[in-house]
């Protein structure tokens, strides 16, 4: 009775939305090695998607395909319903202007001080002059728990965790519509990890951004994600609510989420 009532109420809300990101049949091989073998994925506007998967399963490659940094062998990538792969260079730039990316290894520019790194996009788009950028950088650094004095250091003078946080500040400083986080909390202590998770949730809530996060940390996945997707052997084998991770009923996902040695995922370890 209750269910029959709620179904038509839910339907019009979910129906008309075009996915912010839509992947269909994405394939990519490096030489003989098939990394992506038909990835299908939908990410709804304003939602937060967490991508899970073993090391080397192609999570970073998937994100780089969406950003156009790697050209897939076949398949389609739609952003706001438009095929990115068929776009002209200029249209693609316009899409990238609205996107942010945190690279797995930070990828900070070591020839520039931290504050210029953080406000690089705002300076490139001439949205700020250099003086305003300094203030904005101090603000953005405070958001990720770093002192304003860090702004004058060079990235090489920072610890790994600090670099990660600077990279995060850089990814969100331009307040993009779509943000990709490649392992945002790897290498951070648990408290800072929770702070960063909070920041990501805040980006999605406050800016209305669409977020795609790669993580290996289940606690963080549940905190950040509305939805989660599991990539295994080049395909998405499961998608569902992030809150259910660990008791999804899918043996692959459950094994991964609980970190069990026995299960359908066989680690290729040599003895």
């Amino acid at each position: 009775m209750n269910e029959a009532l709620s179904a038509p109420l839910d339907a019009p809300v979910a129906e008309p939305a075009v996915p912010k990101i839509r992947l269909r049949g994405l394939r990519k091989a490096f030489g003989p090695k098939k990394v992506l073998d038909g990835v299908d994925l939908d990410v709804m506007p304003g939602s937060s998607m967490v991508i899970l998967g073993g090391s080397g399963s192609g999570k970073s490659v998937t994100i780089k395909c969406i950003l156009g940094l790697i050209t897939p062998d076949s398949g389609t990538i739609e952003i706001d319903g438009r095929n990115v792969l068929a776009m002209s260079a200029r249209e693609r730039e316009a899409v990238l202007d609205r996107t942010g990316m945190l690279f797995q290894n930070g990828a900070l520019f070591d020839s520039l001080p931290v504050w210029e790194n953080v406000c690089f996009k705002l300076l490139a788009q001439k949205r700020l002059d250099r003086r305003q950028a300094r203030d904005k950088a101090a603000q953005a650094l405070a958001d990720v728990g770093l002192d304003a004095s860090v702004g004058d250091l060079s990235p090489a003078e920072l610890s790994g965790g600090m670099q990660k946080r600077v990279a995060l500040a850089r990814a969100i400083a331009s307040e993009p519509e779509i943000i990709f986080f490649d392992e945002p909390t790897t290498g951070l202590d648990p408290i800072m990890g929770a702070v960063i998770d909070g920041l990501i949730v805040d980006c999605v809530k406050r800016l209305g951004a669409t977020a795609v996060t790669i993580t290996h940390d289940m606690a963080s996945a549940r905190r950040i994600g509305d939805h989660a997707a599991m990539i295994h052997q080049g395909r998405i084998v499961w998608t569902g609510p992030a809150a259910t991770l660990g008791q999804t009923g899918n043996p692959i996902v459950d094994q991964f989420a609980r970190g069990e040695r026995e299960g359908p995922i066989k680690m290729e370890l040599r003895r």
Binding site: K64, L67, G68, L69, E93, L96, D97, T99, G100, M101, F103, Q104, N105, A107, L108, F109, D110, S111, F120, K121, A124, Q125, R170, S174
Partner: peptide, 20 residues
Amino acid sequence: AEIGTMRVTDQIDALTTLST
């Protein structure tokens, strides 16, 4: 060496994502 290091540490990809 400069540009090669930027390439292998994803800094060139980062430039692209930062509208440059």
